[in-house]
Simulated scan of single mutants.
Amino acid sequence: MGVVAALWRYPVKSMAGERLTEVAVGERGLDGDRLYAVHDPGGKFGSGKNSTRFRRMPGLPAFAARYDGDVPVLTFPDGRVLRGDDGGVHAELAAALDFPGVRLVVEGELPHHDEAAVHLVTTSSLAWLAERTPGVALDERRFRANLLLDTGPAPGLPEEAWVGERLRIGEVELEVLRKAVRCVMVGLPAGGLPAAPGLLKTISEVNGVTFGVQARVVRGGALRVGDVHEVGCSAPHTP
């Protein structure tokens, strides 16, 4: 058992996000999380990697996004602020990213999430990795986790033992699906953190390029900082 230490939502995929004290959670994950993405002219989503769905756009982590109601508000690397419903936002993004034709787009048929609806890490795993990466500014923002769970004195990487288990957090129930595979994003400067160019290599060497876990939502509800989490417990379902 432990508690939720931090909640993070990322209105725009691959941009820095916003720290919350409370959020609604549904089948898709945290309400509004990664609901928007920057699309290239071919429809691929801006990301830290190239794949069938994603197009690498290295400049994206230098942006930040938050919501004003249901509208994403973007903070550019130079400090300018633009709302997602501003007609000039697409051209401004294209210029700032030096990537002609990109557009800020709401999620359609293809999901914006990489692997699963919810990503989480623990304080224990962060402490474990910090011991192996001296001098690196290390917190959950590097890994774009939705949840930071305080696991107290638990040693090592406790969340890895939760794969296949149910996790109850306040009103919410998750099923932990798999370890999270990391990419170059962990070493990029973002959210006020400096670059850590050797971090991905270290994670690869000490933990097979995985860190944290991915989960699906079994039961939605309100999620709050301070909510207790329990492993291996199935929340009672009401009619």
Rank of each mutant, 00 (worst) to 15 (best):
E22T: 12
R224G: 02
K201W: 07
S204Y: 09
L188E: 15
P41Y: 03
D150M: 05
L120V: 02
N146L: 09
P134T: 10
R166P: 08
T21V: 07
T52Q: 13
R103Y: 02
D70S: 13
G69Q: 10
P72G: 07
L167K: 04
Y36D: 00
L82C: 07
G17I: 00
G135K: 11
R216E: 09
E171V: 03
F143N: 02
A64I: 04
R142V: 03
T133D: 00
L223R: 04
V12P: 02
W128K: 02
T122D: 07
L110F: 13
R182G: 03
L7M: 09
P194D: 13
P41T: 08
M1N: 11
D70T: 12
A95Q: 10
V176W: 01
R178Y: 00
K49Q: 14
W128T: 02
V71R: 11
L138S: 03
V225H: 10
G108W: 12
V163Q: 03
G108T: 06
A116Y: 06
P236L: 08
V218T: 13
V12E: 04
D150R: 02
G221A: 08
A62L: 14
S125V: 05
Y36P: 00
S47H: 12
S47A: 15
A190V: 04
A94M: 08
E131Y: 01
R83K: 10
F45A: 15
V106T: 12
G221S: 05
L174Y: 06
P111V: 14
A37G: 15
L60G: 03
L35R: 13
E159R: 01
K179R: 15
T133R: 02
W128D: 09
A137R: 14
L223A: 06
L30Q: 08
F76G: 05
D150G: 07
G198M: 11
G232A: 13
V71N: 06
R141E: 10
H39G: 06
V176S: 01
V231L: 11
A196D: 03
